[in-house]
Every structure is written in structure tokens, then in C-alpha cells.
């Protein structure tokens, strides 16, 4: 099977700032492919290049066999986009938003109504189709956007941080939709996220930081690659260096605790307590998750998202919006 997305040495610079420092990857048809990294790692830049909104500084990328730089029209027809921020027209109804999209994407008139009904059913919004989008909740808007992204039957659906700002229930529901539509339509899903738990849902994950791929594998393989479990120790300030020296493992410190990977960690716990008497106040052992993978690869935790003034404004708008609703 030939690749649906392929990039070679993809570079994007803004003046002196390098957003992407040479990305090579291959995505197979039907995959749920995750781009994992902190804000500012280059995820959005990559997705913008693949969706033809930005031109790469160097390197090339093909999508469904079309070059993103020289055949943007063909690429756009082949992709569906769900952006990080809503991109619906609030003053139109759900159905009108979809009709607009269908017309822009040249969906033949004869199949338009059927398709609209089908995608709305897929995201459980059929009964709300005559409602103005302005009264929709954040989760409903996101679902409507996913429906819209599928309307022209694209080969690749891009989801840029699809669940940011949504409550856990809605996030779970959206994931259910994504998995279902992949099995129903065979679409390739390319998503970015900075939620580790969410990335577990992907078939394969590319970990990106500072514009570079740090790793690319299945979530299980990435976790296995750490070799063992994660040991988290709370203790005095010098522990990080002392543990690293004694056991010869890379140790990361974060917020007063030290983390490292150790095979058979349960047996290791009594040993480390004996080795550093009186210096340890707490120990825990856990199965590694993608947070640990990220920390291992980059030496730090994925940064918590800081709210920009625009985000704060949006949050306020949401609050006002919800008060206005019955």
C-alpha cells in the first residue's frame, strides 16, 4: 500500500526562528496518526503545511500523491480540516454550514442532502440541524466541524487539537466518533495533541519537540522502549545527581521529585531506600505512560498550556453564551 502522506526534509523558518527543522515521515492509509508535542513544538506549522495554508521553506510533502506546494487545489479537495479553534459561521444553522461547505467542495447537488444527513447522523446532530450554531455548546460545535470535515469524503481528516477546551465526557465522545468514522469510512486521521492520555488512542505517534521528530512508533512500543517502570522519588535536593551516579540511569527532576526508568522496579524500591537512608520521603512506581516517554525523550514535562489573552476572551464568551441559553 502506498503512503497517503509523505514528507521529506520538511523545513519551515520564520526569519531566524525555525519552526520545523527537517521532518521526514510516512503515514499509511487508514491510520490514526498522532502528532504529539508541547505548544510551539511545530505541530500546527506542520499541519498548516500539509493542508496548504503555509508553504514550506524547504523540503517537500505529498498528500494522496499530490504535492502540497504545487498542487494545493488537489490537496485541498482530498483533505478535511478540523481546526483547533471553531471555524463555523455562528449566524448560520448547522445545516447551512454544511451546505456552504458542500458547495465550496463541489459536492454534486444530487447527493448533497443525503450526505449532510449522513454526517449529521454520524455525530448525533441530525435533530439539531435547523438550529443556529451560535446556540451550540463547544462539544456540539466540534462534532459539527468533524461532520463538516467528512462531508466531501476526504482521504485524510486533519484534527488540530480536537479536544482542547472540552470536558472529559465530550472528549471521550469525540474519540468514539473518530474511531467509528475510521472504521466506517476508512479515512486516514492525522491529529495533533498535547494531551498524553489522548495520544494513546492513536495507531502511531510522532513525538515532536523544537521542530524535530524525537520518536515515531506505536504508543505501546514507545512505552516499552523505556525499559521497565517509572520510579518517582521525593527527597532532598541532591538526590537527582546521586541516583544518576549510583545506578547509571538518566534521571529527570521536576517539581521536587525525581523520575527515572528501572526494570523490575518493585524489587528495586527496598534497595534504593537502603542506599539512601533518611534522604527519601516518598517513593512510587507506575507503569510508564506517554508523559514518561516524552520526558525521557526531551528531558522535561510537556508544558502546561498557558492561556493567551485570546483564549481568555473566548472562555468569557463561552460563559456568556451559556448564560444566554435556556
Amino acid at each position: 500500500m502506498s503512503a497517503i502522506i509523505e514528507t521529506q526534509g520538511l523545513i519551515k523558518r520564520y526569519g531566524d526562528v525555525t519552526a520545523l527543522a527537517g521532518i521526514d515521515l510516512v503515514v499509511q492509509p487508514g491510520e490514526i496518526f498522532g502528532f504529539l508535542g508541547p505548544n510551539g513544538a511545530g505541530k500546527s506549522t506542520a499541519i498548516k503545511i500539509l493542508s496548504t495554508l503555509l508553504k514550506p521553506t524547504a523540503g517537500r510533502a505529498t498528500l494522496a500523491g499530490f504535492d502540497v506546494a504545487s498542487q494545493p487545489g488537489k490537496v485541498r479537495q482530498s483533505i478535511g480540516m478540523v481546526f483547533q479553534d471553531p471555524s463555523l459561521d455562528n449566524r448560520l444553522t448547522a445545516e447551512e454550514n454544511l451546505q456552504f461547505h458542500a458547495m465550496l467542495y463541489h459536492v454534486p447537488r444530487s447527493v448533497r442532502q443525503d450526505r449532510i444527513a449522513r454526517v449529521l447522523t454520524m455525530v448525533d446532530l441530525l435533530d439539531r440541524r435547523k438550529d443556529l450554531v451560535s446556540i451550540f455548546s463547544g462539544g456540539m460545535k466540534r462534532r459539527l466541524e468533524i461532520a463538516r470535515g467528512l462531508l466531501h469524503e476526504p482521504q485524510v481528516l486533519f484534527l488540530d487539537e480536537p479536544t482542547v477546551g472540552l470536558d472529559p465526557q465530550t472528549r471521550a465522545a469525540i474519540w468514539e466518533h473518530v474511531r467509528r468514522l475510521r472504521s466506517e469510512s476508512g479515512v486516514t486521521v492525522f491529529m495533533t495533541t498535547h494531551y498524553m492520555d489522548e495520544a494513546e488512542n492513536c495507531d502511531r505517534i510522532a513525538v515532536i519537540d523544537h521542530g524535530k521528530l524525537q520518536a515515531l512508533d506505536t504508543p505501546e512500543a514507545l512505552k516499552r522502549s523505556l525499559g521497565g517502570e517509572t520510579v518517582i522519588i521525593t527527597g532532598d535536593a541532591a538526590l537527582q545527581g546521586d541516583i544518576a551516579e549510583r545506578y547509571g540511569v538518566p534521571v529527570q527532576a521536576s517539581e521536587g521529585t525525581v523520575h527515572f526508568q528501572m526494570a523490575d522496579a518493585a524489587q528495586f524500591v527496598p534497595r534504593v531506600v537502603a542506599d539512601f537512608p533518611g534522604r527519601i520521603t516518598a517513593i512510587s512506581v507506575k507503569q510508564p505512560n506517554l508523559d514518561d516517554v516524552f520526558m525521557h525523550l526531551t528531558g522535561r514535562e510537556i508544558r502546561a498550556e498557558e492561556a493567551t489573552p485570546l483564549d481568555r476572551m473566548r472562555m468569557m464568551a463561552r460563559r456568556w453564551g451559556s448564560q444566554g441559553r435556556r
Binding site: G73, R76, F83, S87, Y105, H106
Partner: peptide
């Protein structure tokens, strides 16, 4: 500002 422009700009038109 409200994001709708992106929907239009990424469309094959």
C-alpha cells in the same frame, strides 16, 4: 477573528 475565514481559505477554491 471567529475562525470562519480558515474554513474558506482551506477550501479548494
Amino acid at each position: 477573528e471567529f475562525g470562519f475565514l480558515k474554513e474558506v481559505l482551506v477550501a479548494p477554491v
